[in-house]
Amino acid sequence: MNAALVLEQTLNGLQYGVMLFLMAAGLTLVFGIMNLVNLAHGSLYMVGAYLATAFAHWTGSFFLGAVLALPATLLVGVGVEVIALRTLYERDHLDQVLATFGLILFFNELIAILWGRAAIYTSVPPLLGGHLRVLPGVPYPTYRAAIIVVGVAVAILLWVLVTRTRLGMLIRAGASNRTMVGALGVNIRLLDTLVFGLGAALAGLAGLIAGPIYSVQPGMGEEILIQVFVVIVIGGIGSIRGAVVGAVVVGMVDTLGRAFLKPVLSTVVSAPAADKAGPALASMLIYLLMAAVLFFRPEGLFPARGRS
Protein backbone atom coordinates (compact mmCIF):
# COMPACT_ATOMS: atom_id res chain seq x y z
CA MET A 1 0.00 0.00 0.00
CA ASN A 2 2.06 2.94 -1.19
CA ALA A 3 1.34 6.64 -1.12
CA ALA A 4 0.69 6.92 -4.87
CA LEU A 5 -1.97 4.22 -4.68
CA VAL A 6 -3.63 5.88 -1.70
CA LEU A 7 -3.69 9.15 -3.63
CA GLU A 8 -5.10 7.48 -6.72
CA GLN A 9 -7.83 5.81 -4.67
CA THR A 10 -8.63 9.12 -3.01
CA LEU A 11 -9.10 10.59 -6.47
CA ASN A 12 -11.36 7.66 -7.37
CA GLY A 13 -13.35 8.24 -4.22
CA LEU A 14 -13.73 11.92 -5.03
CA GLN A 15 -14.86 11.14 -8.56
CA TYR A 16 -17.43 8.65 -7.30
CA GLY A 17 -18.58 11.22 -4.76
CA VAL A 18 -19.09 13.75 -7.55
CA MET A 19 -21.34 11.33 -9.44
CA LEU A 20 -23.34 10.77 -6.28
CA PHE A 21 -23.53 14.51 -5.69
CA LEU A 22 -25.07 15.24 -9.10
CA MET A 23 -27.84 12.80 -8.27
CA ALA A 24 -28.16 13.84 -4.65
CA ALA A 25 -28.44 17.57 -5.40
CA GLY A 26 -31.69 17.20 -7.35
CA LEU A 27 -33.15 14.73 -4.93
CA THR A 28 -32.40 16.82 -1.88
CA LEU A 29 -33.73 20.04 -3.51
CA VAL A 30 -37.01 18.37 -4.39
CA PHE A 31 -37.23 16.97 -0.92
CA GLY A 32 -36.37 20.26 0.67
CA ILE A 33 -38.95 22.37 -1.18
CA MET A 34 -41.79 20.00 -1.95
CA ASN A 35 -41.22 17.53 0.88
CA LEU A 36 -41.33 14.77 -1.74
CA VAL A 37 -39.52 11.45 -1.46
CA ASN A 38 -38.90 10.69 -5.11
CA LEU A 39 -37.76 7.11 -5.74
CA ALA A 40 -38.19 7.78 -9.45
CA HIS A 41 -35.20 10.12 -9.41
CA GLY A 42 -33.18 7.14 -10.62
CA SER A 43 -35.54 6.82 -13.58
CA LEU A 44 -34.73 10.37 -14.65
CA TYR A 45 -31.05 9.43 -14.48
CA MET A 46 -31.81 6.50 -16.79
CA VAL A 47 -33.86 8.73 -19.12
CA GLY A 48 -30.94 11.17 -19.27
CA ALA A 49 -28.52 8.40 -20.21
CA TYR A 50 -30.80 7.01 -22.92
CA LEU A 51 -31.68 10.39 -24.40
CA ALA A 52 -28.03 11.45 -24.49
CA THR A 53 -27.09 8.22 -26.21
CA ALA A 54 -29.90 8.55 -28.72
CA PHE A 55 -29.11 12.20 -29.48
CA ALA A 56 -25.39 11.50 -29.69
CA HIS A 57 -26.11 8.75 -32.17
CA TRP A 58 -28.39 11.05 -34.14
CA THR A 59 -26.08 14.06 -34.24
CA GLY A 60 -22.85 12.08 -34.30
CA SER A 61 -21.43 14.15 -31.46
CA PHE A 62 -21.33 13.34 -27.76
CA PHE A 63 -21.41 17.01 -26.79
CA LEU A 64 -24.34 17.92 -29.04
CA GLY A 65 -26.13 14.88 -27.66
CA ALA A 66 -25.46 16.09 -24.14
CA VAL A 67 -26.67 19.59 -24.93
CA LEU A 68 -29.94 18.22 -26.37
CA ALA A 69 -30.44 15.61 -23.66
CA LEU A 70 -30.35 18.07 -20.77
CA PRO A 71 -33.41 20.15 -21.76
CA ALA A 72 -35.14 16.97 -22.92
CA THR A 73 -34.73 15.34 -19.52
CA LEU A 74 -35.87 18.58 -17.92
CA LEU A 75 -39.04 18.39 -20.02
CA VAL A 76 -39.63 14.76 -19.06
CA GLY A 77 -39.20 15.79 -15.43
CA VAL A 78 -41.67 18.66 -15.79
CA GLY A 79 -44.13 16.30 -17.46
CA VAL A 80 -43.88 13.78 -14.63
CA GLU A 81 -44.28 16.53 -12.08
CA VAL A 82 -47.39 18.00 -13.69
CA ILE A 83 -49.09 14.70 -14.48
CA ALA A 84 -48.29 12.49 -11.53
CA LEU A 85 -46.33 14.00 -8.69
CA ARG A 86 -47.91 17.41 -8.12
CA THR A 87 -50.79 15.93 -6.15
CA LEU A 88 -48.41 14.02 -3.93
CA TYR A 89 -46.74 16.95 -2.16
CA GLU A 90 -49.37 17.16 0.54
CA ARG A 91 -49.44 13.41 1.06
CA ASP A 92 -47.40 11.51 3.59
CA HIS A 93 -44.07 9.97 2.65
CA LEU A 94 -45.59 6.55 2.40
CA ASP A 95 -47.86 7.49 -0.50
CA GLN A 96 -44.94 9.19 -2.21
CA VAL A 97 -42.67 6.19 -1.85
CA LEU A 98 -45.30 3.93 -3.37
CA ALA A 99 -46.40 6.17 -6.22
CA THR A 100 -42.83 6.83 -7.27
CA PHE A 101 -42.06 3.10 -6.94
CA GLY A 102 -44.86 2.65 -9.48
CA LEU A 103 -43.17 5.24 -11.70
CA ILE A 104 -39.95 3.20 -11.59
CA LEU A 105 -41.77 0.12 -12.91
CA PHE A 106 -43.41 2.23 -15.59
CA PHE A 107 -40.21 3.91 -16.81
CA ASN A 108 -38.17 0.70 -16.80
CA GLU A 109 -40.72 -1.05 -18.98
CA LEU A 110 -41.18 1.97 -21.24
CA ILE A 111 -37.44 2.10 -21.89
CA ALA A 112 -37.42 -1.67 -22.45
CA ILE A 113 -40.17 -1.31 -25.04
CA LEU A 114 -38.50 1.62 -26.82
CA TRP A 115 -34.87 0.48 -26.76
CA GLY A 116 -35.04 -3.21 -25.82
CA ARG A 117 -33.86 -4.82 -22.62
CA ALA A 118 -30.25 -5.37 -23.63
CA ALA A 119 -27.71 -2.70 -22.76
CA ILE A 120 -27.02 -0.20 -25.55
CA TYR A 121 -23.69 1.04 -26.84
CA THR A 122 -22.12 4.19 -25.50
CA SER A 123 -18.54 5.37 -25.64
CA VAL A 124 -16.29 8.04 -24.28
CA PRO A 125 -16.01 11.03 -26.68
CA PRO A 126 -12.64 10.92 -28.48
CA LEU A 127 -11.70 14.32 -27.04
CA LEU A 128 -11.79 12.90 -23.51
CA GLY A 129 -10.50 9.47 -24.38
CA GLY A 130 -6.89 9.65 -23.23
CA HIS A 131 -5.13 9.68 -19.91
CA LEU A 132 -3.66 12.30 -17.68
CA ARG A 133 -0.43 11.70 -15.80
CA VAL A 134 -1.38 12.83 -12.31
CA LEU A 135 1.62 11.06 -10.86
CA PRO A 136 4.54 9.27 -12.45
CA GLY A 137 3.36 5.81 -13.45
CA VAL A 138 -0.27 6.50 -12.64
CA PRO A 139 -2.31 7.26 -15.75
CA TYR A 140 -5.73 8.61 -14.81
CA PRO A 141 -8.57 8.47 -17.37
CA THR A 142 -9.22 11.99 -18.72
CA TYR A 143 -12.94 11.30 -18.75
CA ARG A 144 -12.96 10.65 -15.01
CA ALA A 145 -10.99 13.81 -14.39
CA ALA A 146 -13.56 15.68 -16.49
CA ILE A 147 -16.33 14.26 -14.30
CA ILE A 148 -14.66 15.77 -11.25
CA VAL A 149 -14.41 19.16 -13.00
CA VAL A 150 -18.07 19.10 -14.08
CA GLY A 151 -19.20 18.08 -10.61
CA VAL A 152 -17.27 20.83 -8.89
CA ALA A 153 -18.58 23.36 -11.44
CA VAL A 154 -22.17 22.26 -10.83
CA ALA A 155 -21.67 22.51 -7.08
CA ILE A 156 -20.40 26.08 -7.42
CA LEU A 157 -23.19 27.05 -9.82
CA LEU A 158 -25.78 25.62 -7.47
CA TRP A 159 -24.24 27.48 -4.58
CA VAL A 160 -24.43 30.74 -6.54
CA LEU A 161 -27.97 29.99 -7.64
CA VAL A 162 -29.20 29.23 -4.16
CA THR A 163 -27.39 32.00 -2.28
CA ARG A 164 -27.11 34.82 -4.82
CA THR A 165 -30.23 34.82 -6.99
CA ARG A 166 -33.90 35.63 -6.49
CA LEU A 167 -34.86 32.09 -7.47
CA GLY A 168 -32.43 30.79 -4.88
CA MET A 169 -33.94 33.04 -2.26
CA LEU A 170 -37.37 31.63 -3.06
CA ILE A 171 -35.98 28.10 -2.91
CA ARG A 172 -34.52 28.75 0.51
CA ALA A 173 -37.70 30.41 1.67
CA GLY A 174 -39.81 27.56 0.27
CA ALA A 175 -37.67 25.04 2.10
CA SER A 176 -38.21 26.65 5.46
CA ASN A 177 -41.82 27.73 5.15
CA ARG A 178 -43.76 26.78 2.10
CA THR A 179 -47.12 28.16 3.18
CA MET A 180 -45.67 31.54 4.01
CA VAL A 181 -44.00 31.85 0.61
CA GLY A 182 -47.31 31.03 -1.05
CA ALA A 183 -49.10 33.57 1.12
CA LEU A 184 -46.64 36.25 0.04
CA GLY A 185 -47.92 35.98 -3.50
CA VAL A 186 -45.23 33.77 -5.02
CA ASN A 187 -46.52 31.32 -7.59
CA ILE A 188 -45.50 28.29 -5.60
CA ARG A 189 -46.71 25.85 -8.25
CA LEU A 190 -44.41 27.36 -10.84
CA LEU A 191 -41.57 27.31 -8.32
CA ASP A 192 -42.24 23.61 -7.67
CA THR A 193 -42.22 22.77 -11.35
CA LEU A 194 -39.01 24.76 -11.88
CA VAL A 195 -37.24 23.08 -9.00
CA PHE A 196 -38.38 19.65 -10.07
CA GLY A 197 -37.25 20.32 -13.62
CA LEU A 198 -33.89 21.50 -12.33
CA GLY A 199 -33.54 18.33 -10.25
CA ALA A 200 -34.51 16.22 -13.27
CA ALA A 201 -31.93 17.98 -15.44
CA LEU A 202 -29.25 17.33 -12.80
CA ALA A 203 -30.23 13.65 -12.70
CA GLY A 204 -30.14 13.62 -16.49
CA LEU A 205 -26.68 15.19 -16.38
CA ALA A 206 -25.51 12.44 -14.03
CA GLY A 207 -27.05 9.88 -16.35
CA LEU A 208 -25.44 11.21 -19.50
CA ILE A 209 -22.08 11.40 -17.77
CA ALA A 210 -22.53 7.84 -16.49
CA GLY A 211 -23.39 6.50 -19.95
CA PRO A 212 -19.86 6.03 -21.27
CA ILE A 213 -18.52 4.34 -18.15
CA TYR A 214 -21.50 2.36 -16.90
CA SER A 215 -23.93 0.03 -18.59
CA VAL A 216 -26.88 1.84 -20.16
CA GLN A 217 -29.81 -0.51 -19.61
CA PRO A 218 -33.29 -0.52 -18.06
CA GLY A 219 -33.10 -0.50 -14.28
CA MET A 220 -29.71 1.28 -14.22
CA GLY A 221 -31.19 3.98 -11.99
CA GLU A 222 -32.03 1.76 -9.05
CA GLU A 223 -28.45 0.59 -8.64
CA ILE A 224 -27.30 4.08 -7.80
CA LEU A 225 -30.53 5.36 -6.24
CA ILE A 226 -30.21 3.61 -2.89
CA GLN A 227 -26.69 4.95 -2.47
CA VAL A 228 -27.90 8.44 -3.30
CA PHE A 229 -30.52 8.15 -0.58
CA VAL A 230 -27.78 7.17 1.82
CA VAL A 231 -25.94 10.34 0.77
CA ILE A 232 -28.80 12.73 1.40
CA VAL A 233 -29.79 11.07 4.64
CA ILE A 234 -26.24 11.32 5.95
CA GLY A 235 -25.96 14.90 4.75
CA GLY A 236 -29.33 15.99 6.06
CA ILE A 237 -32.32 16.09 3.75
CA GLY A 238 -32.98 19.37 1.97
CA SER A 239 -29.47 20.69 2.39
CA ILE A 240 -27.23 21.24 -0.64
CA ARG A 241 -24.26 21.55 1.66
CA GLY A 242 -25.27 18.26 3.23
CA ALA A 243 -25.47 16.67 -0.22
CA VAL A 244 -21.92 17.82 -1.02
CA VAL A 245 -20.49 16.54 2.24
CA GLY A 246 -22.56 13.35 2.21
CA ALA A 247 -21.61 12.54 -1.38
CA VAL A 248 -17.90 12.99 -0.80
CA VAL A 249 -18.01 11.04 2.47
CA VAL A 250 -19.95 8.15 0.94
CA GLY A 251 -17.79 8.16 -2.20
CA MET A 252 -14.61 8.05 -0.13
CA VAL A 253 -15.78 5.50 2.41
CA ASP A 254 -17.11 3.18 -0.26
CA THR A 255 -14.05 3.43 -2.52
CA LEU A 256 -11.41 3.28 0.20
CA GLY A 257 -13.33 0.48 1.90
CA ARG A 258 -13.35 -1.57 -1.28
CA ALA A 259 -9.68 -0.90 -1.88
CA PHE A 260 -8.12 -1.14 1.55
CA LEU A 261 -10.47 -2.91 3.97
CA LYS A 262 -9.18 -6.36 3.10
CA PRO A 263 -5.45 -5.55 3.43
CA VAL A 264 -6.09 -3.63 6.64
CA LEU A 265 -8.19 -6.46 8.08
CA SER A 266 -5.55 -9.01 7.23
CA THR A 267 -3.10 -7.25 9.54
CA VAL A 268 -5.57 -7.75 12.39
CA VAL A 269 -7.07 -11.18 11.68
CA SER A 270 -5.89 -14.17 9.64
CA ALA A 271 -5.69 -13.78 5.86
CA PRO A 272 -8.48 -16.28 5.00
CA ALA A 273 -10.79 -14.62 7.53
CA ALA A 274 -10.00 -11.23 5.99
CA ASP A 275 -10.69 -12.67 2.53
CA LYS A 276 -14.13 -13.68 3.69
CA ALA A 277 -15.08 -10.73 5.86
CA GLY A 278 -13.47 -7.99 3.75
CA PRO A 279 -15.79 -7.98 0.72
CA ALA A 280 -18.90 -8.57 2.83
CA LEU A 281 -18.02 -5.74 5.18
CA ALA A 282 -17.11 -3.42 2.29
CA SER A 283 -20.59 -3.93 0.80
CA MET A 284 -22.22 -3.03 4.10
CA LEU A 285 -19.93 -0.15 4.97
CA ILE A 286 -22.06 2.77 3.74
CA TYR A 287 -25.16 1.39 5.43
CA LEU A 288 -23.24 0.99 8.67
CA LEU A 289 -22.06 4.56 8.26
CA MET A 290 -25.61 5.78 7.72
CA ALA A 291 -26.93 3.90 10.74
CA ALA A 292 -24.10 5.30 12.84
CA VAL A 293 -24.67 8.89 11.68
CA LEU A 294 -28.40 8.65 12.33
CA PHE A 295 -27.74 7.13 15.74
CA PHE A 296 -25.83 10.21 16.82
CA ARG A 297 -27.58 12.79 14.65
CA PRO A 298 -31.11 11.61 13.83
CA GLU A 299 -31.52 14.40 11.24
CA GLY A 300 -28.23 13.94 9.43
CA LEU A 301 -25.08 16.06 9.52
CA PHE A 302 -26.62 19.30 8.23
CA PRO A 303 -30.32 19.44 9.07
CA ALA A 304 -32.02 22.06 6.89
CA ARG A 305 -32.93 25.13 8.91
CA GLY A 306 -36.53 25.83 9.86
CA ARG A 307 -37.65 22.23 9.63
CA SER A 308 -38.38 20.00 12.53
Binding site: Y16, Y214, R258, A259, D275, P279
Partner: peptide
Protein backbone atom coordinates in the same frame (compact mmCIF):
# COMPACT_ATOMS: atom_id res chain seq x y z
CA UNK B 1 -8.06 -12.57 -5.80
CA UNK B 2 -10.73 -9.90 -5.47
CA UNK B 3 -14.45 -10.29 -4.82
CA UNK B 4 -16.52 -7.19 -5.57
CA UNK B 5 -20.00 -6.24 -4.50
CA UNK B 6 -22.78 -7.96 -6.44
CA UNK B 7 -24.26 -5.50 -8.93
CA UNK B 8 -21.39 -3.03 -8.49
CA UNK B 9 -21.18 -0.32 -11.17
CA UNK B 10 -17.82 1.30 -10.68
CA UNK B 11 -14.60 -0.73 -10.74
CA UNK B 12 -12.12 2.12 -10.87
CA UNK B 13 -10.95 1.43 -7.30
CA UNK B 14 -10.39 -2.25 -8.03
CA UNK B 15 -8.68 -1.43 -11.33
CA UNK B 16 -6.25 0.85 -9.51
CA UNK B 17 -5.46 -1.99 -7.07
Amino acid sequence: EVFTKLGQQDYQAEISQ
